[in-house]
Simulated scan of single mutants.
Amino acid sequence: MIRVLVCDDQALIRTGFATIIDAQPDLEVVGECGDGLAAVDQAARLRPDVVVMDVRMPGIDGIEATRRLAGAGVDHPVKVLVVTTFNVDEYVYQALRAGASGFLLKDAPPAQLLHGIRTVAGGAALLAPEVTRQLVGRYATRIRPAAGVPDDVPLTARELEVLRLLAGGRSNSEIAAALVISHETVKTYVSRILTKLELRDRVQAVVYAYRRGLVL
């Protein structure tokens, strides 16, 4: 059972999300709230697997709440799926930098919301590889290191190859074809990369690669 916390300042949307989620046999809504601070408090108490988070809310917004729940340095990070009305690149960028595992628009069909929750709960990123590449590439100058920063990436040569391809927007199947290895082997390499670098999902791996200057 995947435990879900729904956070949105509009009660009608909150109730709608909760109804859709609770109707699934493998999903359970463990709490609802209307602002970012309440989301942080309830997440600490209820320990959900996924928080469905709005962006614009009173008090602290969804971006800051995501940072407190899933950002760097958080002892027990929670997976966050940001769902918003606003299709703005800057929001997507800020959400991912804050630690979100995925991003959806509120006008997405219910099936996409449910798929997003399950995807994020499973440790994967919701964004398609080509979207990740376009988004992170657009903001790469903000996250790349300054010249002279030592590159101390603790990966083998083959793991670096996989990371570079992943950061370039390749799917597991495309990586397998490029390196002439099996799909299962790629999954193993990706898992090792995330473990060694202490990253939560593929989105964080993409950002890491840009920060370290591994992608031109």
Rank of each mutant, 00 (worst) to 15 (best):
L104I: 10
L105G: 13
K106L: 06
K106F: 10
K106A: 05
K106N: 08
K106W: 07
K106T: 11
D107I: 04
A108G: 00
A108W: 02
P109Y: 03
P109K: 08
P109A: 09
P110N: 10
P110A: 12
P110M: 02
P110I: 08
A111G: 12
A111P: 01
A111I: 06
Q112F: 02
L113E: 02
L114H: 06
H115E: 09
G116I: 02
I117E: 08
R118N: 00
T119Y: 07
T119L: 09
T119G: 10
T119D: 03
T119I: 07
A121Y: 00
G122F: 08
G122P: 12
G123W: 04
A124Q: 13
A124K: 10
A124P: 00
A125M: 08
A125K: 01
L126G: 07
L126W: 06
L126K: 05
L127F: 02
L127C: 04
L127E: 02
L127R: 06
A128T: 11
P129W: 04
P129D: 12
P129R: 09
E130W: 05
E130D: 14
V131R: 09
V131M: 11
V131D: 13
V131N: 07
R133H: 12
R133K: 15
Q134C: 00
Q134P: 00
Q134A: 14
L135C: 10
L135F: 08
V136W: 05
V136K: 03
G137P: 05
G137L: 04
G137D: 03
R138S: 15
R138H: 14
Y139F: 14
Y139V: 04
Y139I: 06
Y139C: 12
A140G: 09
A140P: 11
A140N: 05
A140F: 07
T141R: 14
T141D: 14
T141K: 14
R142E: 14
I143N: 00
I143Q: 00
I143V: 10
R144M: 11
R144K: 14
R144G: 09
P145I: 00
P145L: 01
P145Q: 13
A146N: 09
V149W: 13
P150F: 07
V153N: 15
P154T: 09
P154N: 06
P154S: 03
L155P: 09
L155I: 05
L155T: 05
T156D: 13
T156I: 04
T156M: 05
E159R: 03
E159N: 04
L160M: 15
V162H: 00
V162M: 08
V162T: 03
L163I: 09
L163A: 07
L163Q: 05
R164M: 08
R164A: 12
L165F: 03
L165W: 02
L165H: 11
L165P: 06
A167S: 11
A167Y: 06
G168K: 02
G168S: 13
G169F: 02
G169M: 07
R170H: 08
S171Q: 04
N172Q: 12
S173N: 04
S173T: 13
E174T: 06
E174K: 04
I175W: 02
A176W: 05
A176N: 05
A177R: 12
A177Q: 15
